[in-house]
């Protein structure tokens, strides 16, 4: 078996983020590849969500936020003035903590992205994209007979999978998930985790989670953040059995602070 060493999908180098005078991220460098789900863990306020949001420029929406350093997608600097931010967010999709379907039909929730990005020239192709996306999000069988019903009428777990289907529909390369299961019950959580497993390899996936068991279950690589720095980044199996850094160890064993 020959090991193929692919170039990282996304690469961050010495990234610093400031909210006004306050520095939230103090120089983080990390490579994210297609083959491994990456989990960001760390206590509240450690900067893991802030850093996640730099990866598709969600911090642009915060007026006081300023980002320094380089972040590349397929080698292209995403903070370059030539970068189309709308296009970037289609390529680097995001799923949030609270499911946030549009107050539209299930069908329209998924069709929205392909429509505005002009991905489907006709109704038949749009139907196909919607179906494929819902299938991949593991939701198709549950909603195929009621695509015209409102997305907000679904259960929390279904809404979250609808949001994942919506992100998938624009054919992204990277999916960022910011605590996607923290509002869900254990069964719905298990379905999302299984979905992450299914999606691995097709998309680069980064997940922020407060649940260390979840990080251990879904990821192959784990990064531990603390006070705006990335303390340790390594194979998930190593991080949870034999972390190198004392701060990582104290956090994952529940001795933090």
């Amino acid at each position: 078996m020959t090991e193929t060493v692919s170039a990282p999908k996304m690469s961050a180098h010495d990234v610093k983020v400031f909210y006004g005078d306050k520095q939230a991220i103090k120089g983080v460098s990390i490579d994210i590849d297609m083959d491994n789900v990456v989990a960001f863990i760390g206590p509240s306020g450690c900067g893991k969500s802030t850093f996640l949001r730099t990866l598709n420029r969600m911090n642009d929406t915060i007026p006081t936020a300023r980002v320094e350093g380089d972040i590349t997608l397929d080698g292209e600097n995403i903070y370059s003035s030539k970068m189309d931010v709308v296009q970037l967010r289609a390529r680097v999709g995001m799923v949030f903590q609270k499911p946030n379907p549009f107050p539209k039909s299930i069908y329209d929730n998924v069709a929205y992205g392909p429509r505005i990005h002009g991905l489907a020239p006709n109704k038949a192709e749009l139907d196909q994209i919607v179906e494929n996306s819902l299938v991949r999000a593991g939701l198709w069988n549950e909603v195929k007979d009621r695509l015209s019903e409102s997305g907000t009428a679904l259960s929390g777990g279904q809404q979250q999978r609808l949001c994942i289907a919506r992100a998938i529909a624009v054919d992204p390369e990277v999916i960022l998930m910011d605590e996607p299961c923290s509002a869900l019950d254990p069964i719905a959580t298990a379905k999302i985790e299984e979905l992450i497993h299914e999606l691995r390899g097709r998309y680069a996936i980064v997940i922020v989670t407060h649940n260390m068991q979840q990080a251990a279950r879904v990821s192959q690589k784990t990064a531990f953040f603390h006070l705006g720095t990335m303390v340790e980044y390594g194979d998930t199996s190593d991080i949870f059995t034999n972390p190198r850094e004392e701060r990582t160890r104290d956090y994952i064993t529940g001795r933090y602070g």
């Binding site: 260390m212 949870f240 059995t241 034999n242 972390p243 160890r249 994952i252 064993t253 529940g254």
Partner: peptide, 9 residues
């Protein structure tokens, strides 16, 4: 307790 790292070991 879902122990980790040195606790698990």
């Amino acid at each position: 307790r879902a122990p980790m790292a040195d606790d698990l070991r």
